[in-house]
Write a protein that binds this DNA or RNA. Structure first.
Lengths: 348, 348
DNA sequence: CTGAAAGCGCTTACAG
DNA sequence: CTGAAAGCGCTTACAG
């Protein structure tokens, strides 16, 4: 009774029924008499039988698999993957498992061909896209995906005319919360690390929140404190180094990602400045690292568990023909020690 | 010419050849005349055609997919995944892509059924197992996998009589390096966080290295400084808290994982002790966090890129019928500030 | 409630 | 170098 690779036909023979009945029984079809069904299921279990996914998928045109495309913005092969997306990956895998889907992970280069292939080859029923992309390049690729009738959902803000569905956090509100917090602590010369007019829309939104907080407080923005930056620690370090060298006065930094903020703090430390006494720092994302750096980083948290659930719900909805609405998740400011608030410094 | 879901038959019709020839051409078969082959490939490209993996897999009994099983030792649904394994995940995905395999990620509970199913259902050609497992429980599950003729490779040391293949780092040597380093700095009362006789074999090996370094230096081990611990930051915190409360004298800690070390440092800080002046701390793994905690953690690095390549090579070998030899990777001590060596403290 | 049959889209001996 | 044909292991109308 130890078959190496049992098929539904083998089960049928043993159970004394047709192969069709076995197939129905294993899918819990109410068409099969309960008794028969259970007998068949027991035999399958005893034989360690599992439905051949290739055969089933060929018939049904489904894979029950979601492809998760991670965009490695660093481009290099050695580079660490953005820890925020790594956290998402774990949560997405959990959510997908709950929804009955497997997750196929793929690291992609933003400039490379995106795997339209995943769905076209029936390896996945839909895609989740994760990464801070360059807006313009991104757009064209998304259009290609859409043209190929690929089902996909993007982690990120809903951008006008952007093809496809998306789910993201309210980046503008996050940037606003971060900046308002700094202003409320009495900071007036707040550098912005990560302004890129042509860059990822989430960064632009965070920057917009920064501006809004300034407007609201009647504060002018010193354009010399706005630094463009891709998302990496080294860039944060370099930009703050340049800022210091420029001699421009600043007493706070809002970095549009935690990686940038961590690099910024390192630059401040290396130049002999103290965080938060000399300079307050706020980041964005709340990567696992953020709580461990010294001082622990105040940052805008995006709840990866909720986000992952929403993304999985979204793509499953698309697969099942129920398109999700684009929506925004509320971010939350997590106050730690890097801006001085928790030590009661410079209270208003 | 815009077919929604073109098949090889469609290509054949357009190219004016048989479907069999299309199949051969797309697989770059030398049987097909170069001219014909290229013409067919061009048509396929133009039509955005990709071979249906389900159909191909059904024929060939292959999926070109590796399942990566991550054991979430924390058990909880909220828990963070061990960052070391998350790093491995990224590197494994890269290595697998280079070898032409997709990666299916699955979070598993150690106590749950391991998915014999992945291979039996032809969703994956083989498995990579990642996680610190309890030795005894682990063993039985591995045996079940082996009984089902599943191809798998384990990240971890080769344990006698353990079913299956494995690749891991030389944990004993790592533990030895860590401890010898502490001894060379003049430390004599070195607490060991993570001794578990019944636990994961890697921990036992690290502990063995600790003993070896003591033996070699002619130093006795104070059994009261040996603390059992599962791998989590909170446990490290709690164990060091108890150690402090016990009143036992210690001037160094070797934690068998970075998470434990980070928890240990937090406990030391909370009790008013300075790292490394009062207590030197060394961890194990070199998780991304390690360089960022304060002070930066001296630790034993396991090179995740090399490890990932070896694991992927191993499982691909098994799939292709070339069983790999179990092997050990050399770990490397990364000296940072948590033990005082880099500041020239207590030099011998 | 059950069975016989068609067919999903490939790959690969077999024949030429 | 190419084609006709078989068959991988399922799911699901269709018929009873």
């Amino acid at each position: 009774m130890k078959l190496a690779n049992p098929t539904s036909r083998d089960i049928a023979e043993i159970a004394g029924v047709s192969q069709a009945t076995v197939s129905r029984a294993l899918r819990d079809s109410p068409l099969v008499r309960k008794e028969t069904r259970e007998r068949i299921q027991k035999i399958a279990r005893d034989l360690n039988y599992f439905v051949n996914r290739n055969a089933a998928g060929l018939r049904t045109h489904q894979s029950n698999t979601i492809a998760l495309l991670l965009f490695d913005e660093t481009g290099g092969t050695d580079a660490e993957i953005n820890p925020f997306f790594l956290s998402m990956l774990g949560d997405i895998t959990r959510s997908a498992a709950n929804a009955g889907y497997d997750v196929l992970v793929s690291l992609q280069q933003l400039h490379a061909d995106w795997h339209i292939e995943y769905q076209a080859s029936h390896r996945a029923d839909g895609l989740i896209l994760l990464g801070y992309g360059d807006y313009r390049e991104y757009r064209e690729k998304l259009a290609a995906l859409a043209r190929a009738n690929t089902r996909f959902i993007i982690w990120g803000p809903a951008v006008d005319d952007q093809p496809g569905h998306s789910f993201g956090c309210d980046n503008q509100d996050g940037g606003y919360q971060a900046t308002r917090h700094l202003i409320s602590l009495g900071r007036r010369d707040i550098a912005l690390i990560g302004a890129r007019s042509d860059g990822a829309p989430e960064m632009a939104d965070r920057y917009a929140g920064y501006r809004k907080a300034h407007d609201e407080a009647g504060l002018a923005i010193n354009p010399k404190l706005l630094r463009r930056a891709d998302n990496s620690e080294d860039v944060g370090y370099a930009q703050v180094g340049e800022l210091i060298d420029s001699g421009e006065r600043f007493d706070a930094i809002f970095a549009v990602t935690d990686l940038l903020a961590i690099g910024a703090m390192r630059a401040l430390k290396d130049s002999g400045r103290t965080v938060p006494d000399d300079v307050s720092v706020v980041g964005f994302d709340d990567v696992p690292l953020a709580a461990y750096v010294s001082p622990p980083l105040t940052t805008v948290q995006q709840n990866t568990r909720l986000a992952s659930e929403a993304l999985v719900d979204g793509i499953v909805g698309l697969i099942e023909g129920k398109p999700p609405e684009s929506a925004l998740m509320a971010p939350r400011l997590v106050v730690r020690d890097s801006c001085g608030a928790s030590r009661g410094q410079r209270p208003r």
